[in-house]
Write a protein that binds this DNA or RNA. Structure first.
Lengths: 326, 326
DNA sequence: CATCTATCCGAAATGGATTTCAGACTGGCC
DNA sequence: GGCCAGTCTGAAATCCATTTCGGATAGATG
């Protein structure tokens, strides 16, 4: 049915080997032959069978991408970045969504690993040691997670948190709540660590943990109000939006009575009223960088095991933060 | 490096053929042998090389999924459904995002088609005739689009629109604007068609077309206000949210001065204030149904070319619609 | 003119699983 | 005992592209 290399060979009057060479190692074949082969390949509509190629080269031309939850707009953005960069490099992308199930991650990785050259693991929830055994078998790049000897792309969390807290303290806030996300999320641990490092400037009330979703924020809102703070930082924008929503329902003015600050800068943050002040984390850019590191890992495995890219974050001041109430 | 069928064969003391049979056509081998083979396969951690299998069977065990824009929360939901169902059936999913570029679609499909058994095309923007030539080469199922002789999954648009309009007329609205989405979107054409069929009950003002995004809604908002209507239906929730946002900025009360209604029921719709009345379209469910049809198409190509599944829509009444102003 | 060196190309081996075909063995039946 | 059918298994062919190895040709050199 499909056009094979033999068809091209026959029509072009050469052997299969020559066809391969003409297409993948052009300098090895006579210019004239090369052109003839290429033209017939085009006219016949020949595309090498990837399974056959993969069989012999051991490469698939695919990469895998694992995310915890596509329902969180943060991840589709990362996915877009991964896609874009992967397609540029002529790789196709396998996507899998774990539904925030840490125990499903390893299985999915192992399953994907047979059909891809490498995997971008975005915000994996599994424990360090499990992760470490995984990367022993498969080329893996981490996005939004960092462990020793594995290439990773992460935001500059300490700086991100510094920007957030500086903004709040500049507005007069001293007693600030943090609504924590999943304990298993590295990003949560890092945010917390960065935040605790700043307690010389502020008094920190930790609330949670909650799921990194709108409902998580709604669930934590009343505890935040009971904690008698003037500002609250949500684990991410969805949590912050949940807070906003519940505050509004209880008649608490934002930012009049309390300031709310999120993380991520999902598109949604600018769409609501009041719009959400948030720390924009690299998303598409992180996805692209993840693929970059992965491709590098695939081509020079030794040199890049420790490659690490930290991308800057940017505070986006919007309507949900303001001066402390008088 | 990896465990091959030969390793299993050697250890189990049988031939490679027997290993295959024990694993894929169990009834053909002696129960005792079968068990021995299976156990050694497990202990050795054998997994058949998919490239090799694909080479001979012509099947990849993969399906492709094409969506216009992951940035629109509608699509990640569909993706989740596709993923879930595909994984149940032991298929992996290639995802590609076209960035709302109709001209990129065909190329991506063709590229994907080599490495998948079939493709779920979600809300494709390309013209009918182009689509028709594509489906000649590749098993394709359409989600959110319908053309003759191609299996498709669509919402019950006429009923969806009927629910929307009934709701608005019950509230007293008679002069209603529709902010149209992309002309190339089949869903837009269907919404418009269903809407025009209802003009005996209402006076319809058509505005647009706009991109199916928040910005599109913002851009159309002032035209809506100038049109002197008491209610507006957005092409989708993002457009409706854009309208809401701009109305608020201009001091127009929703639903006091104007009612706003969207389509899709993305998670966001319930998170904003006022929350958005919208017609919930099947999303995950549509994704699952799309995979179902595709698997059916792959197993019995003839019987199912015209398979068509229409899924019900449900009006979600929330805060953005109310009685006409007095 | 003989020898050597590039340059270019083809034949054959390769990768791993599946499928076809044929052989070995068992049991049943005449 | 001989033949047949049925059951189970192995050898070999197959899928397609790539890679290795060696052969052929042309040109260069002494």
């Amino acid at each position: 049915m499909a056009v094979t290399i033999k068809d091209v060979a026959r029509v072009a009057g050469v052997s299969a080997s020559t066809v391969t060479r003409a297409l993948t190692m052009p300098e090895l074949v006579h210019p004239e032959t090369r052109e003839r082969v290429r033209r017939t390949a085009v006219t016949l509509g020949y595309h090498p069978n990837r399974a056959a190629r993969g069989l012999i080269t051991g490469r698939t031309g695919n990469i895998g991408l694992l995310v915890p939850d596509l329902g969180n707009p943060f991840f589709p953005s990362v996915v877009k970045g991964v896609q874009a960069r992967a397609h540029e490099a002529d790789y196709a992308v396998f996507l899998a969504d774990t539904d925030e199930d840490a125990t499903a991650e390893a299985g999915l990785v192992r399953r994907l690993s047979k059909q891809v050259d490498g995997i971008v693991l975005c915000s994996p929830r599994m424990p360090d040691e499990e992760l470490r055994t995984l990367v022993a078998d498969t080329p893996v790049v981490l996005v939004n997670r960092r462990i020793a000897k594995v290439p990773s792309v992460t935001p500059e969390f300490p700086d991100a948190m510094r920007q957030a807290v500086s903004h709040l303290t500049a507005l007069g806030h001293r007693r600030i709540a943090y609504v924590a996300g999943p304990r298993s999320a590295w990003a949560n641990r890092e945010r917390l660590r960065s935040l605790r490092a700043l307690t010389k400037d502020i008094e920190l009330i930790e609330i949670g943990n909650v799921m990194p979703m709108f409902e998580g924020g709604v669930a934590a809102a009343d505890q935040v109000l009971a904690a008698d703070v003037t500002a609250v930082i949500g684990y991410n924008d969805l949590v912050a939006l949940g807070l906003l929503n519940r505050f509004m329902a209880r008649g608490v003015a934002v930012p009049g009575d309390i300031s709310v600050l999120g993380f991520d800068d999902i598109a949604l943050a600018a769409m609501v009223h009041p719009s959400l002040t948030t720390v924009a984390l690299p998303k598409e850019q992180a996805g692209r960088a993840g693929v970059d590191l992965l491709l590098q890992l695939l081509t020079e495995p030794d040199r890049s095991t420790a490659a690490r890219r930290e991308l800057p974050a940017q505070l986006m001041v919007r309507g949900s933060t303001g001066p402390t109430p008088a």
